[in-house]
Design a binder for these strands. Sequence first.
DNA 1: TATATACTTGAGTGATCGCTCAATAAACCC
DNA 2: GGGTTTATTGAGCGATCACTCAAGTATATA
Lengths: 190, 190
Amino acid sequence: MPRKPGYDRNDLINRARDLFWRQGWAGTSLKDLEAELQMKPGSFYAAFGSKDALYGLALDQYASDGAARLHALAGEHGPVEALRRFPLEVLKNPSAPARACMLSRTLLELQAHEHPLADRASDHLRGMEEQFATLFTEAQSRGEIDPTLDPKKLARKYQSDLMGLRVTAERRDVDALALASEFAETVGRT
Amino acid sequence: MPRKPGYDRNDLINRARDLFWRQGWAGTSLKDLEAELQMKPGSFYAAFGSKDALYGLALDQYASDGAARLHALAGEHGPVEALRRFPLEVLKNPSAPARACMLSRTLLELQAHEHPLADRASDHLRGMEEQFATLFTEAQSRGEIDPTLDPKKLARKYQSDLMGLRVTAERRDVDALALASEFAETVGRT
DNA sequence: TATATACTTGAGTGATCGCTCAATAAACCC
DNA sequence: GGGTTTATTGAGCGATCACTCAAGTATATA
């Protein structure tokens, strides 16, 4: 009886993610979304309910994409090499919406207003951190890094430095790739 | 002949800086500013011209404050110890508007729309970086750190890691001080 | 004290914000 | 093909955005 939508929902979410990632939450208006997704307001709200709801979906998509990419890298190159290559995946991609991390952007923009999406971003950051820790643990059991170090501390430091790198890479007067390869060298040491 | 303003202009800029620092550019409305500065729209626009103009002044104030604080630390404790203590100045202060750096916030929020304030933030970041480099150079001539390292690279890495630290410190599930002292230990090494 | 010169007030500007909804069109089952 | 169900359309909602301006008030000089 029903009528099928004329769009691919997952594709819409990915396009919205890129737009939000690039322009931020407040910086992306419904006009922007309507233009990017080729949807009129009625369809948009029938499909997603609200701008915030779509942002949440985009955030989840962003996080699970990152987790999948890191997992794939680890399977192909092992844990340490995966952690070294991970930053380059974004920084080397010229069509990436932004260098900075969408999760940290969201946290910075919405935390002060105690917006639920800030907590959602924070949760995803913790999830990524746990994935990093798992890789460090695996690297230790393989004998690739110092086994006396605390994987959780390594993971937190790795993530923190990575976010710094990705913010710095937003600057136009900075050679992001040079900074990234310098970052890669330090992974596993200290 | 004229009439003196009933406010201290510098105090207003400082209060605006704290509000912008905490809530961001889009996150701070003129209503917010009017309430915080106790000014009606007419007075506000007579005094500052526009929201962007005041944001620019606040940004400059933020940058020069930071530079002055770092300079004072260096005079008191020497370059390396200054660089070690610098992050704690913000993170230990419970009344600070935010943990994250206002310059990086501004860059992240406004860069995609090519807003002039993003460039202004970027310029200030470069200025801070140069100050860091100067301190590293001084530390080398004092023999406090490895003289073969490039002060500019050290400065960039220091600033990048510092920004990461300060973003991470925004998370409610993270012990910012533990991360900061860990960060302090690494200054001058590597 | 008179006057010129600012500062202050606050109602109100057009534009844009996220969002609604009644009307219309299209696709599925029987 | 008829009937049902859902997707799509787009004008337009109230609220808020940054901002303006004419009128009123206070202060310094003459």
